[in-house]
């Protein structure tokens, strides 16, 4: 242990020397790693933002429950209570015939005049039900069992599409993480192997002098770690700039879309990039060392 502490200065100096031996190639490696992490960070940020937005949309997912027209108010209140007791349902609100009409007027806007062609209000009263989107199937099953329920407008196609988008984004995010992880491991282990090749005479001498594998390999491990952490820092810097610019643009163009907090997103992503760069740097360096044996 004492010897390891004594040698820390040596290990750092050696790592610096190894880095300088192939300076230009190492600088390009840092830039490549930085760009790889930046792309990963963009995909994950996009994934995070989409998940956040979809989460909010999911929370606001609604279905409309139409009931028998002969039902009186006390029966409707009972029906609402029954609906609210179903698992996965947040809130159920009665929408009268007049309110349904007014909502349509609002939706149609300047074309609302078309509604004047009807002699009487063509809309039926209904119960507006907020649901947890992931439980839509079981909720519909339960609602269909209620005798008073005549018809359900479930917007299932829209909900299914939303779920598909979430699924695709998750797959893309996962693939991006795997692809970037593998690319980083390959790049780092290749750099380490190159460093070992460039220093093969020194390594050979140390082996002949009986130096332990740890003593020989640790400077290369440090070099790999340094390269990925530098790459991570570059990626973090680019990401901070991109998020700032992106938010300022989206704030103007898409004011109605609820975005997650910029500071929380930035902090989380920087922590993620730096942690990933450290872990991938360590694993890639170990791969490089093991494959050079």
């Amino acid at each position: 242990m004492r010897s390891t502490i004594y040698n820390i200065g040596y290990f750092l100096k050696e790592a610096k020397t190894i880095f300088k031996v192939d300076l230009l190639s190492n600088i390009f490696s840092i830039l490549s790693i930085g760009l790889i992490f930046f792309i990963l960070a963009l995909v994950i940020s996009g994934w995070g933002i989409s998940n956040y937005v979809i989460g909010i949309i999911e929370k606001e997912a609604e279905i409309n429950v139409y009931f028998r027209e002969d039902m009186r108010d006390p029966d409707i209140i009972e029906l609402i209570k029954e609906i609210e007791s179903i698992e996965g349902i947040g809130k159920a609100v009665f929408v009268s015939q007049e309110e349904a009409y007014n909502r349509m007027v609002e939706i149609l806007g300047s074309e609302a005049a078309i509604l004047e062609l009807f002699d009487e209000n063509p809309f039926s009263p209904f119960i507006e039900v907020q649901i947890h989107i992931e439980e839509v199937d079981s909720i519909l099953e339960e609602l269909e069992k209620i005798e008073e329920v005549e018809h359900i407008r479930d917007n299932k196609r829209v909900i299914d599409r939303l779920q598909n988008i979430v699924f695709i984004l998750k797959i893309i995010g996962l693939l991006a993480v795997v692809a970037v992880g593998i690319s980083t491991l390959v790049v780092i282990s290749h750099i380490i192997r190159q460093g070992i090749y460039n220093n093969r005479e020194q390594i050979n001498t140390l082996e002949l002098l009986g130096a332990p594998e740890f003593f020989i390999g640790f400077p290369f491990f440090l070099e790999g770690l340094f390269l990925t952490i530098m790459g991570g820092l570059i990626a973090s810097l680019l990401l901070v700039i991109t998020i700032r610019y992106g938010y300022s643009q989206m704030g103007i163009a898409l004011t109605f879309i609820p975005l997650p907090s910029k500071d929380i997103l930035t902090n989380n992503m920087v922590i993620f990039i730096m942690a990933s760069s450290g872990v991938l740097g360590a694993v890639g360096s170990l791969f490089g060392l093991m494959s050079s044996r």
Binding site: E201, N204, T205, E207, L208, L209, G210, A211, P212
Partner: peptide, 16 residues
Amino acid sequence: RRLRRRMGPVFQEFKL
């Protein structure tokens, strides 16, 4: 490798 730590080799081509 451990045994070599008890040796003092002087190589023909020095290996400095």
